[in-house]
Design a protein around this nucleic acid. Structure first.
Lengths: 139, 139
DNA sequence: ATAGCTGCAAATGCTTTGCAAGGCC
DNA sequence: GGCCTTGCAAAGCATTTGCAGCTAT
């Protein structure tokens, strides 16, 4: 049943993470994951779900984005004070950030050679290394 | 006149950047720059200036931090949604960020070898490269 | 049945703004 | 004097929370 595959995929994705496949989560999962890698804000996701005739409150959007992030379905990217981006690409990678347009572009991890990382401070473990290349329109 | 030197330094720092040396800016400049490299939030600076018996409104703290950043006296560091850190070290360097304590620690630029940076997207110039090593208490 | 979700609206937290009063050149 | 600064209070945004009602298992 070809037509049912996206539905099944979203369902399995949620169940495998121990999240109940509610109507809202299913709809958001499909918007987020069916279109390949993307970077999205809560507000954008809210707008998209309304455009898709899915009624989901902003509060639920936030809850869902954070739950997805906690279980590893999303990555939160912090590039600007006062606005969070969520990245559907959870593999190890980095970002270009256009400060004028707000656009994020993925950089494959292998495209940057990170050498000679210093030791983390006493009593701490490295959780993640984020490289953000901030760009602007060429002048 | 040894005693006057910190005052003179702050004065020159502001004047050379084309900022009027007002009472508030002078006081904040001294708090920020006399203690060596530091990472501070608007709220922290507000608290410190009150502790130093300097009356400065929060609005002015924000204005001043942004003005200082614009003229290159400070660097803004974005590590967490909803909170901005300002770094008195404006040289090229990177950061450890402890997600539990909120503490930032400088990493000298030479401590990280960044190779093979990819080309920035069509029509854009690189403005800055930020490396943030996110750490947590060792488990 | 019941533990977990959702939605709404109110609350929060940080930051910005409008505007009158004050201060530097 | 004139223009830049400041302070206050109010407004603005993105995000979070409390709680009553709903829903998946």
């Amino acid at each position: 049943m070809i037509i049912a595959r996206p539905y099944t995929e979203a369902l399995e994705r949620l169940k495998s993470m121990g999240l109940r496949p509610t109507r809202q989560r299913m709809a958001l999962a499909r918007i987020l994951f069916e279109a390949g890698d993307r970077h999205i804000t809560a507000e954008q996701l809210h707008t998209e779900s309304q455009a898709a005739n899915v009624r989901v409150s902003l509060a639920t959007i936030y809850n869902t984005l954070h739950q997805f992030t906690e279980v590893g379905l999303l990555n939160e990217v912090v590039v600007e004070p006062g606005r969070s981006y969520f990245d559907t690409n959870v593999s190890n990678h980095h970002h270009f950030y256009n400060e004028e347009t707000g656009e994020l572009v993925d950089i494959r991890a292998e495209s940057i050679r990170l050498d000679a990382l210093p030791e983390s401070p006493e009593g701490t473990d490295v959780r993640r290394v984020d490289v953000i290349i901030r760009v602007r329109s060429a002048g």
